[in-house]
Amino acid sequence: MVDGLGQLYTIEGVAAGILMVFTAYLVISSTTVITPQDIHIIDLQLEQLGNDALAILDTPDSLGEKSLLQRQIENDGGNAFGENFSRIINSKVNPLEVDNLKFSAILYYRDISSGNTLSIPINNSATYLREKAVKVKRWVYVNPVPPCSNPFGLNTRNQTVLVEVLLWRG
């Protein structure tokens, strides 16, 4: 039994209970929860692909041979890097589909005469306009002595340079 002051009638209690349970179920099962983990995963996909691409480019075809990335820095230049890197990051399993990832690559090296760390653009597939981007890096061992054309003007000696690539979705 209930009185009339501040208490629910039985039918209201049952209705409210059902409504609350049903609404709670709806909220839990249908709300798209945007969590920091989700955003991290999307970044991570791009970062993983970029790291994979640099690793592939820096893997020689046979023992003792120079990798494609080494050859591009020592001799072939930024356009060769751009073509190969873009092909790797934009290739999908379906050969008829192509992704639309953009990149901008920079080479960091130490100038032995000044002792400073200098940078020089390698190649970019688009102008970076502050899109949401990730950065991937790889240390590359190079020795751009003649007859290498040394397109980036590195010191002609054994050295390790840093290739840094900014990646974003176009």
């Binding site: 996909q45 993983q48 692909l49 592939i56 893997t59 790797i88 990051i89 290739s91 999908k92």
Partner: peptide, 8 residues
């Protein structure tokens, strides 16, 4: 859910 990897 999707991930793409490139490998040798």
């Amino acid at each position: 859910g999707y991930i793409r990897r490139v490998a040798k």
